[in-house]
């Protein structure tokens, strides 16, 4: 299939689909390559729906495969975190490339509400350590 400029309709390196994997109480979302705005938007809705139905308590968004994060995607990440928080789940953005971090600061997008980790494994550890692993376990630990 091609568009009116004779280009293929799907761009090589662009993702039309984002894998979302459930690992226990955590959703692992892996962003890779380049994202259409509409895919990022859809992802936000999907994650909200998945949290609500599955009751996961943590979301890890692995962006180590993203070469560019602009203000649109930055906002989507911040909104996913805010929306997850309302649904009693915590979000950690993992694996931001150094060049992306430098660029985001210069762009003026420091995303203060966003929790981050150096990689997906560290993000899972962070969620487990800070009690996101189970709301019930944490509350029973608070009242021994």
């Amino acid at each position: 299939m091609s568009d009116s400029y004779g280009r293929p309709v799907s761009v090589p390196g662009a993702s039309a689909h984002v894998p979302v994997l459930r690992l226990g109480d955590v959703l692992l979302v892996t962003l890779q390559g380049d994202l259409y705005d509409s895919v990022a938007q859809q992802l936000q809705e999907d994650i909200g729906a998945t949290i609500a139905t599955s009751g996961v308590t943590g979301v890890v968004i692995d962006i180590s495969g993203m070469e560019v994060v602009d203000s649109y995607l930055g906002r989507v990440l911040a909104e996913i975190a805010a929306q997850s928080s309302l649904l009693a789940a915590r979000t950690v953005v993992a694996g931001m490339r150094p060049a992306v971090a430098i660029t985001l600061v210069e762009l003026g997008l420091t995303l203060p509400g966003l929790r981050t980790a150096l990689n997906a494994e560290a993000a899972m550890d962070l969620l487990a350590r800070t009690g996101s692993g189970s709301r019930f376990r944490r509350s029973s630990a608070e009242h021994p």
Binding site: V11, G13, D37, E67, A99, V100, I102, T103, E106
Partner: peptide, 24 residues
């Protein structure tokens, strides 16, 4: 927008931009 980003990335790389400058 995806095509624009890919074109700029490739053109900048071809002209010898470093990784951070390309990303910016």
């Amino acid at each position: 927008l995806v095509w624009v980003r890919q074109h700029v990335r490739q053109a900048a790389a071809r002209l010898g931009f470093g990784l951070v400058e390309q990303t910016k």
